[in-house]
């Protein structure tokens, strides 16, 4: 007799546990306000990334097209993957002294692992992360970027 009771108890307990699960899922079905996905390419304009978001490494320039990079090469040394390459040149300043400055600050986005060591170790805070995240391109060579803008100069007062 007890085995028969056990048999029916198992059935009803099983059905009850299934109904509990169905209550959760059907509850979500009838509450469309809880939808979490976004219509991504349509909402591009209102997408705001967090300020610390690691999109890509950039070199911020001010309005006079000046940057802070002295060309010391510390970022290049610290980069674990060889993502950054600093090509420096020697320029003559107004008072006749010879000085090192960057020619090209090459950043290979395809190799970057976003460890943030370059940004953190830069002694003059010349590098930063941008919020750009749509990096897909049709040609791999487009991923090799030059961080300093053409014709840019070192900001005054930075050695």
């Amino acid at each position: 007799m007890s085995s028969i009771i056990q048999y029916f108890r198992e059935i009803f307990q099983g059905i009850w546990s299934l109904l509990k699960g169905m209550r959760v899922t059907s509850g979500y079905f009838f509450s469309p306000g809880k939808i979490v996905t976004q219509k991504y390419p349509n909402n591009r304009k209102d997408l705001v990334m967090f300020e610390r978001f690691k999109g890509e490494v950039i070199m911020p320039h001010n309005e006079n097209n000046e940057h802070k990079c002295t060309g010391c090469g510390i970022c290049e040394i610290n980069c674990p993957n060889g993502t950054i390459e600093v090509i420096s040149k020697t320029i003559v300043t107004e008072d006749g002294k010879k000085k090192r400055a960057i020619d090209k600050h090459i950043y290979r986005l395809g190799m970057c692992t976003f460890c943030a060591l370059c940004v953190k170790t830069c002694p003059s805070n010349a590098l930063a992360f941008s919020q750009e995240f749509e990096h897909a391109v049709f040609n791999r060579s487009l991923l090799i970027k030059i961080s300093n803008k053409p014709g840019s100069q070192l900001m005054k007062g930075i050695e």
Binding site: K20, G21, R23, V24
Partner: peptide, 10 residues
Amino acid sequence: EYDAILTGNV
């Protein structure tokens, strides 16, 4: 809810 959907499910 996790328990209702999976843990307790027969």
